[in-house]
Design a protein around this nucleic acid. Sequence first.
DNA 1: TTTGTTTTCGGAAACGTTTCCGAAAAAATA
DNA 2: TATTTTTTCGGAAACGTTTCCGAAAACAAA
Lengths: 336, 336
Amino acid sequence: MKHTTIKDVAKKMGVSVSTISRAFNDKYDIKKETRDRILKMAKEMGYSPNPIARKLTQKRSYNIGFVVPEFVNSFFPEVIIGAQEVLLEEGYQVLIMQSDLSWETERKNVKTLVDNMVDGLIVSLTSEEKNNTYYKELISSKMPIVFFNRVVDELSASKVLFDDFKWSFFATEHLIVQGFIDIIHITGTKSLSLTKNRINGFEAAHRKHKLKVGEVIYTGFTTEDGERIAESLIEREVLPKAIFAANDALAIGAMHVFKKNGYQIPGDIAIVGFSESRLAEHISPPLTSVKQPTHDIGRAAAQLLLDQINTTGVFIPQSMVLNGRLNIRESSVKVI
Amino acid sequence: MKHTTIKDVAKKMGVSVSTISRAFNDKYDIKKETRDRILKMAKEMGYSPNPIARKLTQKRSYNIGFVVPEFVNSFFPEVIIGAQEVLLEEGYQVLIMQSDLSWETERKNVKTLVDNMVDGLIVSLTSEEKNNTYYKELISSKMPIVFFNRVVDELSASKVLFDDFKWSFFATEHLIVQGFIDIIHITGTKSLSLTKNRINGFEAAHRKHKLKVGEVIYTGFTTEDGERIAESLIEREVLPKAIFAANDALAIGAMHVFKKNGYQIPGDIAIVGFSESRLAEHISPPLTSVKQPTHDIGRAAAQLLLDQINTTGVFIPQSMVLNGRLNIRESSVKVI
DNA sequence: TTTGTTTTCGGAAACGTTTCCGAAAAAATA
DNA sequence: TATTTTTTCGGAAACGTTTCCGAAAACAAA
């Protein structure tokens, strides 16, 4: 553990500590030759500046914190990869933490990240209420932060969003124009605004086509939730003709129990999902779903964060909303 | 940014800085009452010790670093969740970094984690050669570290392993006993020892049953690799009767193009995968696969790491090998 | 050569803690 | 009460850097 320190190099070379520091920080007030000499010697001695000590005096750590609510679905990993692409390019390292769908651990996560002096944060919320005041403090303390996917209007920070209303609208309209009536919308956590937006899109599509708006069922966002809902639906005996799920996991779970119970998809029930997952096209039948540009979401978030970090004056939060695509597959096309 | 510091509280309360420090570190040599008084006041003033400064003098950060080669497949996220369960319990925070299958960024990842003074590391390698000497230095510098899944024998550290040989053996035997001959093994990166072990298991099963050992095809670990291999197989015109893939992603990719080209599974080709993914049972036909105890792998790794951290004397590296299960599903049962 | 500028560097304070050492205060013992 | 022991606390050094300030050295201008 006898790490070589800046003093060791200074002593060895007979120069002052500050000179070594200057050499490493590429300051203007040092002679080229001595800098090269120092750098060479430092490398020989296996010295590199201690980042902890450095952070104590400086402001920057070149670390970015990334907090996601979960990451077993590939959605969040994919946006992280996108963000990491642009961040690494700029010399930043990305520290990831996952909140396990708990706002308490989310809170702890961003705290440890802040404690470790990250230069900025990219976060997607587990809940839109619980940590609000905490985030407000954070924002007013000038910590650069951008939210994505799961955001809250109340917080004045940069955000990258998806037009949930629009694509929910398109997805249900796709069902409607094929003649499906009696469509049910299964959705996740009630408190998230993306949930509300998708519901609004679902209902708007009905209204546009002068249809009685379909039922909305709340549950979680997991495959198991989808299975549970499907089972309860089957017990009703009168099944809907189509289901629009707020999430591929839900759709797949539901599909699973429908198939197990002998229902044909899309013959008996048509299904469309959201936030296209990797398996959408591999499952049987292939699942119609709204594809979000995960990669681009990450890249955009990273870019907004960098903008904020590099802004010296007051920063005006920016919001971007990205576009998606409805990938129509077998699970939702009416058999004639 | 005018964070309240320990001095502020000291001044405000008319006591020395060291007393405040003692109050926060629960030292024996402070009077109960003054400690309570200090803690209360500190809370009022919104003070909490700066972890960076603290790290400079202390050794512990209560942060654990987790480095994985990728995380869009749910395998790694699941083991992280398992590890996080036991680590959070003990008051540690888990910082995750992903290497994007590049050993260079893996290198950078563990470096920044070490720079941030994590108390220990849990890592799964991208390559078993490239960073060896680096890890050796790290280990000899007494950094607690445990490897899992993708490990290298040469490194003397704790490891948690899966018996790839055994389960590969069982998987191919499952194919063999049903009368499939002409089985091909598709596998990933050649340099990983888990690859070798799975090949050995594959071959051993053949030998046990006195069969000519099947062909082994090397590729990557992604769905796309599986698709590519399947296409090249189709061009051969004489297809194998069964495929054992070293990975569910490979299996699913291959299955996809076989189905697209009108082949029946398992009628024309039977398929079994490995490291069961979430989609195995949802895909069509449901995929036979070897299930690894992802959760337990994480828990075990975390436990081994904690053991090492809490050992004061010399630590003797431990290895654990965990058990799996072959989940037989439709994709590999011979149709009669 | 003298004076003025610029370049290059050293000394020391600062960042926010912890910890060692010793002293004052309190308690226990004689 | 006098002495010893224990408890509680303050002062200061240390952790490894960066940065401010000023001085020495080098150079340019007069």
